[in-house]
C-alpha cells in the first residue's frame, strides 16, 4: 500500500488535513479578504457576532473586525509554528545525530548539554528569553525553537544509536564512506519517519506556546495574534464573550488538526502499526 492510501485510511487524519488546508488558505488570503490592517477600527465598537453582516464575528472595543484578526492571526501562528519547528528540528537532528553516531565522550557531552535544557521548564524559559530579548517575532520564534529542540535531539540520538550497528551502515563503513556522509545518506533517511511525526506535533505545541506568550503580553505588539486577542479580551469575558471565544476556537481547531495529522503520519509511516485500523 502506498503512503498516501495508508494515510487516507485514517478518517481523523483526513479531517485534520482538510482543516489545516482551510487555515492555510485563510492565512494566505488574509490580505485579499481584509485589505485593511486588522489593527484598524472599521465598525462600531463591541458589535456582537452576526449583529452586522459585514462583521460576522463581531468587533472589539476599538471597532476592529474579529474575523480579520483571526485571519491575520493565522499567518502569525503558522509562521511562528513552522519556522520555530524547523529551527528546532535542525538543531535537534544535528546534535542528536552527532551524539548517537559517535557515542562515547561526544555523546556524553551533547546529552548533558541537552539535559541542561530539559531540566528547565520549557515555557518558563521561553518567557525569560522573550523578556530578555524584547518581544518581537524573531525573538519569539527563536525562544520557542530553543526550548523545543531537546526532545528531537533525544529521539534522533536513539534512532542513530540503534541504526548505526545495522549491516547496511557497517557496509557503508567498509566501502569507505565518511562519517558525515553515512549519517546524511544512510542513517538519516531511515530515521526520518519519527522525526516528521514529532515535528508535526511540535508545530502544534509551538502555536500554543506563541499564543500563551501573547496572552501574557509577551507577543509582538505589532502583529495580530490569537493569543494576543484572547489576552486582551480575557477580562471582558462576561461582557463580550466573542472577543476571546473565536480566537480560542481558532487555536483549538488548528492545534487539533495538526495533532490529527501527526497521528495520521505516525500510523502511515510506522511499519509496526501498518494494518491497524485508523
Amino acid at each position: 500500500m502506498s503512503f498516501l492510501r495508508r494515510y487516507a485510511q485514517n478518517v481523523g487524519a483526513l479531517i485534520g488535513l482538510a482543516i489545516l488546508v482551510v487555515v492555510v488558505l485563510v492565512a494566505l488570503a488574509a490580505p485579499v479578504l481584509y485589505p485593511v490592517s486588522p489593527w484598524q477600527g472599521v465598525g462600531e465598537p463591541l458589535l456582537g457576532p452576526f449583529e452586522d453582516p459585514a462583521y460576522p464575528l463581531g468587533t472589539d472595543l476599538l471597532g476592529r473586525d474579529i474575523a480579520a484578526g483571526i485571519a491575520y492571526g493565522a499567518r502569525v501562528s503558522l509562521l511562528i509554528g513552522i519556522i520555530s519547528t524547523a529551527v528546532a528540528v535542525v538543531i535537534g537532528v544535528a546534535l542528536g545525530a552527532l551524539a548517537g553516531f559517535y557515542g562515547g565522550r561526544v555523546d556524553d557531552m551533547l546529552m548533558r548539554f541537552t539535559e541542561f535544557f530539559q531540566t528547565i521548564p520549557a515555557f518558563a524559559m521561553a518567557v525569560v528569553l522573550v523578556a530578555i530579548f524584547s518581544p518581537n517575532i524573531t525573538s519569539i520564534t527563536l525562544a520557542i525553537a530553543v526550548v523545543s529542540w531537546p526532545p528531537v535531539a533525544r529521539l534522533v540520538r536513539g534512532e542513530f544509536l540503534s541504526l548505526r550497528s545495522r549491516e547496511f551502515v557497517q557496509a557503508a563503513v567498509v566501502v569507505g564512506q565518511t562519517g558525515p556522509r553515512i549519517m546524511a545518506t544512510q542513517i538519516l533517511p531511515n530515521a526520518i519517519s519519527p522525526i516528521i511525526v514529532t515535528a508535526s506535533l511540535m508545530v502544534a505545541t509551538a502555536i500554543l506556546t506563541e499564543s500563551s506568550l501573547s496572552f501574557l503580553g509577551l507577543g509582538d505588539r505589532n502583529m495580530m495574534s490569537w493569543g494576543f486577542m484572547i489576552g486582551a479580551a480575557r477580562t471582558m469575558l462576561r461582557e463580550a464573550w466573542w472577543l476571546s471565544v473565536f480566537p480560542g476556537v481558532a487555536i483549538l481547531v488548528t492545534v487539533l488538526a495538526i495533532n490529527l495529522i501527526g497521528e495520521g503520519l505516525n500510523d502511515a509511516m510506522n511499519p509496526h502499526l501498518r494494518g491497524r485500523k485508523g
Binding site: 490592517s37 489593527w39 484598524q40 477600527g41 476599538l62 503580553g217
Partner: peptide, 14 residues
Amino acid sequence: WDRMAEYVKQQLEQ
C-alpha cells in the same frame, strides 16, 4: 492604556 496605544498607532498610520 494598551488599547489606547493601539488606537493612536492606527490613527498615526492613517
